[in-house]
Amino acid sequence: MEKFTVHQGVAAPMLQINIDTDAIIPSREMKLVSKQGLGEGLFAGWRYTLPNGREPNEDFVLNQAQYKNSSILLAGDNFGCGSSREHAVWALKEYGIKAIIAPGFGSIFYHNCIRNGILPVVLGNDEVLALANHVEKDPQTCQVNINLLECYVCAYNTDHQSTELEATDSVNETLRFSFSILPAQQEMLLEGLDGIALTLKSKSNIASFKQAYQRQYPWLA
């Protein structure tokens, strides 16, 4: 899995609350028995003028020129609620989304992000709004920078760019927010770990647990 350490890019605001995984990828767009080929179906219901059509709806944020190459979403609370379909995350990934910043996430969606190298960042509602206000001034230059090593998000202006990412601190000190993430999930993303490979290191523990468990609960064996 791809590692996530630091990322900076264009951020698109989609601040409506409760954006569900049906909206992220409608079921009708999940055509293949595959994790690939889903990027085109991302937000299909909003992104195109007609269901099953491919003519871009110019009103939709990701279709607007100023949000070209967005790699970060600034979202409302409970983003990714609803269906467990991991296709939502595969579609976001294929489209080029690296991180999503929201006041809260659907629980299954959150875990699906971690499993696929997308960083879900939980910030306060006002903090997400502040970032959206920053971005809206000029999305291509008023970007967002996310640092998973030190767990902070900050506004970043490419106009005043210095070659050192650290210099972002001085660019817009007021728009720097720290976030928290469980160490397990931080490590998984930073190292690009494969959960199964990691767990298989505990294979003998699992085997001995299973033996004892089956003795105690034989009807489940």
Binding site: V89, I108, H111, T199
Partner: peptide
């Protein structure tokens, strides 16, 4: 409920 990747994890481990 879980995603597909976690289902793979549960099946394999």
């Amino acid at each position: 409920g879980i995603g597909s990747s976690e289902a793979e994890h549960a099946l394999a481990t």
